[in-house]
Design a protein around this nucleic acid. Structure first.
Lengths: 256, 256
DNA sequence: CGATGAATTGACCGATGTCAAGTGGCGTGG
DNA sequence: CCACGCCACTTGACATCGGTCAATTCATCG
């Protein structure tokens, strides 16, 4: 049989990300092979736009390397970051379930490599592959959990707590451990962070600087180093009974 | 073969709700029959609690009649309504995906009838029934869409718009058309509404009364009648450029 | 008809968004 | 290699939405 070089490298990539991908969990070598045959490979530079809200759905993506930002623009122009996507994650699940336009935009934050599929083709394959359908169920279920959590946080927590939660989520996904420190070397703008935490870049700026003065983290334009994850978690869960004033990291901030 | 009376009535109920249930869409008579055999039937009175956050997962539910409220309590005691559930909806999808505790509470708002399944049993059946797994995928996908929308709304819209959206969602599900009016005869407390719109019962009270004075709706303790759905939608989508003052339904409200 | 819980209304105020005016680091082009 | 300009970020002043609490009023049910 004919086997294209593209499907060979696709197979190599699939094997490589399988351990870190819910999408590929439990698939047999045979199934990976079939997936690879209908996949294509592509590379994106940083800052590229992959697709925009409202565009007709062209592809289902599996991220192999890099970081993507999934966002929406509100009618008033404000930007909301629904999620960040990392290697092993999929983007555009809705496409295989019959949705014909993208309900959000995807932008490349760190140079990326992806496999992508033609939705109807993948959809057909999924229907024959019980494992794959099940995996998609689990992915959606997990995403739903996360959104419920973030919805509740947005509704009940103050900006500082939400920012802490946002940072924790980020650190868990792309923080590189180095002794007691966690390093994020993907340059995420304050605006992106704000859109993720549900606030404005002004407020984020104030909070991060306050935390920096308090020794919770260090940062510059392209690096963010969390020095005290425990304190961050304390702030995030600060279950103060009521409109409390004793803010953990505010102690010793600016005099007035 | 032996067929219990319970599984017979379960089958009758399954046939009845099938047209309005995403969960049962496309299932064959044979499959419905098998589902019925492993199902149980139960009735709940209004105000009953079905399960609480954190309880071990006992059942997967399919609502046949009535209305349920799915909620969480925030650490500070505030109540959040994640969703209302109506006939044809399922509750506790996470249980068949291996989750062992309920991440939310379910309470009965209007007297209800449900079919329920033992999660591992249903899980096994689902794995053999591609259609069912696919349906669950679509349900989860839709729920995810809704939460993304509500997340964005919570982040970008003011309370009046969010309240409008909440009311629209309610009316679409349980509004009974009567001429130009839409009647909601399920008594939903202001507190429940507040938890659904992401605000407090005080603010909800003020907004509903303002709308009532503006002729958008009428209400009493147990009935809510939307008289002008179009206006409601206008308020919900009010895409005013910036902190605008010309609020649609505020015109002609209280003198001060 | 009284008790109970739900809803109303007012007064207050604080967290956080908005806007304006810097500041500084980085990359590009001369 | 330096200088310029740009863009991301910072910081302050201010306004305001909507949450909090307290005091009533209202309906419904026994």
């Amino acid at each position: 049989v004919l086997v294209s070089t593209e499907s060979i490298s696709a197979l190599v990539e699939l094997r490589r990300v399988q351990p870190s991908s819910m999408f590929l969990r439990g698939l047999s070598g045979q199934e990976l092979h079939q997936l690879a045959e209908i996949a294509s490979l592509k590379v994106y530079p940083a800052r590229a736009n992959v697709f925009q809200t409202g565009e007709p759905t062209k592809h289902f993506h599996l991220l192999l390397a890099g970081v993507w930002k999934i966002s929406q623009e509100a009618p008033n122009g404000q930007f909301i970051n629904l999620a960040f996507r990392f290697p092993g994650h999929v983007v555009g699940v809705h496409s295989v379930l019959g949705s014909t336009t993208y309900p959000f935009s995807a932008d490349v934050i760190a140079p990326s490599k992806v496999l992508f599929w033609h939705p109807p083709t993948l959809s057909t394959f999924m229907r024959q592959t019980a494992n794959l359908t099940w995996n998609v169920c689990e992915i959606l279920n997990l995403a739903l959990y996360e959104f419920c959590d973030r919805y509740r946080e947005l509704m009940t927590e103050n900006v500082e707590q939400r920012t802490a939660h946002a940072l924790i989520r980020l650190v868990e996904q792309l923080g590189k451990r180095k002794g007691p420190e966690l390093i994020i070397d993907t340059p995420i703008s304050l605006e992106d962070l704000a859109g993720y935490a549900g606030t404005t870049l002004f407020t984020i700026s104030r909070i991060l600087n306050r935390w920096q003065r308090g020794g919770l983290l260090r940062k510059n334009r392209r690096l963010l180093i969390v020095e005290d994850l425990e304190l961050l978690k304390t702030i995030a869960d600060a279950t103060y009974a009521r409109p409390d004033t004793a803010r953990v990291a505010s102690a010793g901030s600016r005099p007035r």
